[in-house]
Design a protein around this nucleic acid. Structure first.
Lengths: 143, 143
DNA sequence: ATTGTTGCAAACTATTTGCAAGGCG
DNA sequence: CGCCTTGCAAATAGTTTGCAACAAT
């Protein structure tokens, strides 16, 4: 995996630095769809001198290399996903967590949209909003 | 229409002010999904003393009254839509315009997602990205 | 050695908030 | 008249940028 990133970076003329590898690894190792700040906080213990700016700059490059995709779940900050397959996401209105939605076939839906519009479609993002199992229980307990 | 907003505002204990009516009217009169700043600029000639803060505060209220929905098309700013039915949107990667996608039935797709997740779903947003007809032509002309 | 990268601080932008003056009910 | 709203300015938060010191190739 990391070898892959190393090669990809070098091939595109980017230098391979420990910070870049660490940021990508952090993203690849989680399904939590962290924000820039969450990545920064997670790496603080290991890279105490690393700045938030470096996180942003690196994400910019990873985006260019198609190693991360950007999510815009309607919060104040962006979230990032090292899984670049185009899958829907769901955000919990209770705790704010963002999960993947696998096992959903959106191709029919996309085909339908494509036939209805005179746009040339290049991509899409599907965001669902609801309550995660844990927050459902808490709400039930309160009432 | 405006009578409707007036009534809704009063019923919920909000005061009816010319600014609020103007902001809602501006939103209801367009399909361009303007940002707060676009609304502000459009109303500048008519309400030269109105501030951006008022636009934001009013939108907050309209949101509460379910008179507008918020779009998060992946730009730096939010966009607003007085059409509160849940329809997909498409943004042109060329010129940035945002259009509605009508005539698309997403109920099957939503049902499928609903059955695949243990979230309790409350809503969703579908964003498509592509090239609008006008930008397609321009790109073709350049190449 | 060269060129890109880091990390700090400052800049920037969208949005929110505090508050005094003003307007709606 | 009382309370809500406006509009200004300042605050806030996320992200971006400039630049000198530094590191990868």
């Amino acid at each position: 995996m990391d070898i892959c990133v190393t090669t990809l970076l070098r091939d595109k003329g980017f230098k391979v630095t420990p910070q870049r590898l660490a940021i990508y690894s952090a993203l690849a190792a989680t399904k939590a769809h962290p924000s820039a700040e969450m990545i920064y906080n997670e790496l603080q213990p290991v890279y105490p001198t690393m700045s938030l700016a470096t996180v942003y700059k690196t994400i910019e490059i990873l985006k260019e290399l198609n190693l991360v995709q950007v999510l815009n779940v309607g919060e104040d900050s962006f979230r990032y996903d090292a899984d670049t397959t185009n899958h829907p996401h769901v955000r919990c209105m209770g705790c704010g967590r963002v999960d993947d939605l696998y096992g959903v076939d959106s191709s029919e839906f996309i085909k339908q949209v494509s036939s209805q519009t005179d746009y040339t479609l290049q991509g899409q993002q599907f965001y669902f909003y609801g309550m995660c199992p844990r927050c459902q229980k808490q709400t039930a307990a309160v009432s």
